[in-house]
Computed example of a mutant assay.
Amino acid sequence: MDRIQLEFFKQDVETVARRLIGVSLLIDGVGGWIVETEAYDALDPAAHSYRGRTARNAAVFGPPGHAYVNRSYGIHWCLNVVCGTEVGGAVLIRAIEPSAGVAAMIARRGIDDLRGLCSGPGRLCQALGIDGSFDGRALDRPPFELSGSALTTIQVGPRIGLSRGKEKLWRFWLEGSRFVSRPVPGLRKTKSVS
């Protein structure tokens, strides 16, 4: 499989979020296929970059192709990939289908339910061993490995858990995947673009 190059992340956030569905995400050889993402840009009131740069969100203002790792509700780590044609854009990796290093993920999470290992951004980071030390790291170098591209049927819908920017249909997930964090029935299907 071909590794994802940094040029890939220089596209708009919606395109990157769609095209990450079906890509393999490994951290030190542990991970799986991305099955759910959400897009955010600097003009989006739900984005961490919307109110400007701070010490906490500095990585999201960095170059495309780097990780932005943040805490959700002060509890869970979340992995975002910095991308976009303008600064301040990122794609949240919401869920993967575990396929490599499953035993390590089970040990980190303390559960053996394969479906629940990585179905949500906090669970995913715990299973992959991602914490704040990953913030700002380049995605084209170890411990990260992003590779492949798959033409898959995806579904599109509203992002999850937002009080602002709810109208944007910037959540993308693999149709029929049992590994997504929350399925939303009856929304439109689209083909991803290679």
Rank of each mutant, 00 (worst) to 15 (best):
L6P: 13
E7W: 07
F9K: 12
Q11A: 12
D12W: 10
D12Y: 10
V13P: 13
V13C: 10
E14Q: 15
A17V: 06
L20V: 06
L20Y: 03
L20F: 09
I21Q: 03
I21P: 02
G22L: 05
V23N: 05
D28R: 03
G29M: 06
G29N: 10
I34P: 14
V35M: 02
A39M: 15
Y40P: 13
L43D: 15
L43W: 14
D44L: 14
A46K: 14
H48P: 15
H48Q: 15
S49R: 15
R51H: 15
G52D: 13
G52N: 11
R53M: 10
T54W: 08
A55G: 09
A59V: 13
A59K: 01
F61K: 10
F61A: 13
G62R: 03
P63A: 09
A67V: 10
Y68I: 03
Y68R: 02
V69I: 02
V69F: 11
R71H: 09
S72C: 04
Y73C: 04
G74T: 05
G74W: 04
G74A: 08
H76T: 03
W77C: 11
C78E: 09
N80I: 02
V81L: 11
V82R: 11
C83Y: 04
C83I: 07
C83Q: 08
G84F: 02
V87L: 15
G89R: 02
A90K: 09
V91C: 05
V91M: 04
V91Q: 10
I93E: 02
I93W: 04
I93A: 08
R94T: 00
R94D: 00
P98R: 05
V102M: 05
V102L: 08
A103H: 06
A104H: 07
M105L: 06
I106M: 13
I106N: 05
A107I: 10
R109S: 09
R109M: 04
I111W: 09
I111R: 00
I111K: 00
I111A: 01
L114D: 04
C118G: 02
G120V: 02
P121M: 03
G122H: 03
G122Y: 04
R123C: 07
L124G: 12
C125S: 10
Q126T: 14
Q126R: 11
A127T: 12
A127Q: 11
G132H: 06
G132Q: 08
S133C: 06
D135S: 10
G136R: 05
G136D: 08
A138L: 11
R141P: 13
P142Y: 08
G148D: 05
T152W: 06
V156E: 15
P158C: 12
I160W: 01
G161T: 04
S163K: 12
K168Y: 14
L169R: 07
W170N: 11
F172Q: 01
F172L: 01
W173A: 00
W173E: 00
E175N: 07
R178Y: 04
R178G: 03
F179D: 00
F179K: 00
R182S: 04
R182L: 01
R182D: 03
P183E: 00
V184P: 01
V184G: 00
L187E: 09
K189S: 04
S194I: 00
